[in-house]
Computed example of a mutant assay.
Amino acid sequence: MLTITRELRDRIVAHSRADHPDEACGVIAGPAGTGRPERFIPMLNAARSPTFYEFDSGDLLKLYREMDDLDEEPVVIYHSHTATEAYPSRTDVSYASEPFAHYVLVSTAEGTGEEDPYQFRSFRIVDGVITEEDVEVVEGYRV
């Protein structure tokens, strides 16, 4: 299960809406070994595409060095789908290289319904196997 604060969920959704019609992407880092997403890091979609996302390799290298220096790890790796449901594509699966990360997808496609204006789903992707997981949205983490 992914436990995430309402603030972080809202920031992912806002980033996804702001970059629409292109796919948005980013990372939420957390203290190594905790599985707790804390630091929101929106990234630039280097592909600038409505159907594909790609982290800039230089930005990604810088981010991983920064996380290493801060004893952090990528807890959530997120991106948006602008015209399809929030479910990993074959390309998404081929890019999933962090076996302990939660892969969050947000769909900003039209017609998802007024009560639920977007889809926000989380998956584990390990060795090409996609497993959807529950998402618990909390006001804050217990210390």
Rank of each mutant, 00 (worst) to 15 (best):
Y78T: 00
I41D: 11
G58F: 05
E23P: 04
Q119F: 11
D127T: 03
Y53E: 04
E73Q: 01
M43P: 09
V76I: 14
T51R: 14
V138L: 10
V135L: 14
D116A: 13
M1F: 05
L44M: 04
M67T: 01
L2F: 14
H81M: 08
T131L: 15
T82E: 15
T34D: 12
V106P: 03
A47D: 14
G33F: 05
T5A: 06
Y78N: 06
V135T: 11
A29N: 00
V13I: 13
L44C: 09
F120V: 03
V75Q: 02
G58T: 12
I77Y: 07
M43T: 04
E132G: 11
D71W: 12
V106M: 07
S57Y: 08
R65P: 03
T131R: 15
G140C: 02
S57V: 09
G140V: 01
T34S: 15
S89A: 09
D71P: 00
R90I: 08
E54G: 05
T108Q: 13
V137G: 09
V129P: 14
D10F: 08
L70V: 00
T84Y: 12
G33S: 02
D22A: 13
T84R: 15
I41W: 10
A109G: 10
V137K: 06
F120I: 03
G30N: 09
D56K: 00
S107G: 12
D69W: 01
Y87S: 08
V135E: 06
M67S: 07
V27W: 03
F55L: 03
E38A: 10
V13E: 03
R121K: 12
A47N: 13
S49G: 01
E132P: 06
F52K: 14
G58C: 12
V137Y: 14
P31D: 10
D22W: 06
D69F: 05
E133H: 07
P31V: 11
G128S: 02
R65V: 00
Q119T: 04
R36E: 14
G30L: 00
T34E: 12
A32S: 13
